[in-house]
C-alpha cells in the first residue's frame, strides 16, 4: 500500500513538473517575437552556449567516429564487406549517434551552465532586481538563452557528424586500408537526403528544444540557495538525458 502511495506521488510530481514546464514553454514562446527584435542578445548567448561547447563536440565527434570506424571494420571484415564501412559510419552518425551524443554532451556542458547561471541570478536576487526595474526576466534572460540553445544544437550536430565521418575515415581508410573511393562512394550512394539527413536535423532541433527547455526551466525555478542550485543543475543533466533518450525512441519510431 505504501509502495502504491509513493508511486502515486512520484507520478503526480512528474506530471506537475511536466505541466509547469509546458506553461513555461508557452510563456517563453509568447516572448519570442520581442526577443527576436534584439538579435544581439541571442548571438551573445549562441557564443556562450554553442561556441563554448565546440571543443568538446569536436573531440567527442572525432573519437566516436574513430571507434565506429574500428568496430565497423572489425565486424565487416568478417563478412568481407569492409567497403560498406562508409555507409555504416555515416548512417550511424546521421541517424542516431550525432543528435543523441551531441544532445547528451550539450546537456552536460551548456545545460548545466545555463541552469547554474540562471539559478544563481535567482539566488542573488538579480532576477527580482530586474522585475523591480520593470524588466521581464523571462524575456530578457530566459528567451535569448532558449533560442540560442535551439539554434546551436543543429549546428553542433552538423559539426559532430562531419568530424565523426573524418574520424571514421582516418581509422577505416588511413589506418586499416579500406579503399577511399569505396568509403566515400558508398556514403554518396546510400545516404538519402530526406530519409537520413533531414530526420537527423529534425531530431537535433527537437533535442535542442528539450535540453534547453529543461536547463532554463530548472534554473528559473531553482530554490534560491546553494543547495537548491546544485540540485537543479543535477536535475538538468539527469532529466535532459532521460528526455533525449525517450524522445529519440519516439522520433525513430515515427520517422523510420
Amino acid at each position: 500500500m505504501r509502495l502504491l502511495r509513493e508511486a502515486y506521488y512520484i507520478i503526480l510530481g512528474f506530471l506537475q513538473m511536466l505541466g509547469a514546464a509546458g506553461f513555461f514553454l508557452a510563456q517563453m514562446l509568447r516572448h519570442v517575437p520581442k526577443a527576436l527584435m534584439r538579435p544581439r542578445l541571442i548571438f551573445q548567448q549562441v557564443f556562450n552556449v554553442g561556441a563554448m561547447s565546440l571543443v568538446l563536440i569536436l573531440i567527442a565527434g572525432l573519437f566516436v567516429g574513430m571507434v565506429m570506424g574500428l568496430q565497423g571494420y572489425n565486424t565487416l571484415s568478417k563478412f568481407a564487406a569492409t567497403s560498406a564501412l562508409g555507409t555504416l559510419v555515416a548512417l550511424s552518425l546521421l541517424r542516431e549517434l550525432g543528435p543523441v551524443v551531441t544532445a547528451l554532451l550539450f546537456a552536460g556542458r551548456a545545460g548545466t551552465a545555463l541552469t547554474s547561471e540562471i539559478g544563481l541570478m535567482r539566488a542573488t536576487e538579480q532576477i527580482a532586481g530586474m522585475e523591480m526595474m520593470a524588466v521581464d526576466p523571462v524575456q530578457r534572460i530566459v528567451v535569448p538563452r532558449f533560442l540560442a540553445g535551439v539554434i546551436s544544437m543543429p549546428l553542433l550536430v552538423g559539426i559532430f557528424n562531419a568530424v565523426g565521418l573524418l574520424g571514421g575515415y582516418l581509422v577505416g581508410v588511413v589506418l586499416m586500408g579500406v579503399d577511399a573511393g569505396a568509403f566515400w562512394g558508398q556514403i554518396h550512394g546510400t545516404v538519402d537526403l530526406h530519409e537520413d539527413f533531414w530526420t537527423g536535423v529534425i531530431k537535433s532541433v527537437v533535442f535542442g528544444i528539450a535540453t534547453t527547455l529543461v536547463a532554463v526551466f530548472e534554473g528559473y525555478y531553482a530554490h534560491p540557495t546553494a543547495e537548491g542550485v546544485s540540485r537543479a543543475t543535477t536535475r538538468t543533466v539527469v532529466n535532459s538525458a532521460l528526455l533525449v533518450l525517450a524522445l529519440d525512441y519516439l522520433l525513430t519510431a515515427f520517422m523510420f
Binding site: 542573488t124 536576487e125 538579480q126 527580482a128 532586481g129 523591480m132 526595474m133
Partner: peptide, 11 residues
Amino acid sequence: GFLFQNGALFT
C-alpha cells in the same frame, strides 16, 4: 527604485 540588501547587481 528598489535597493536590495545585497545590491543585486548583475555580476
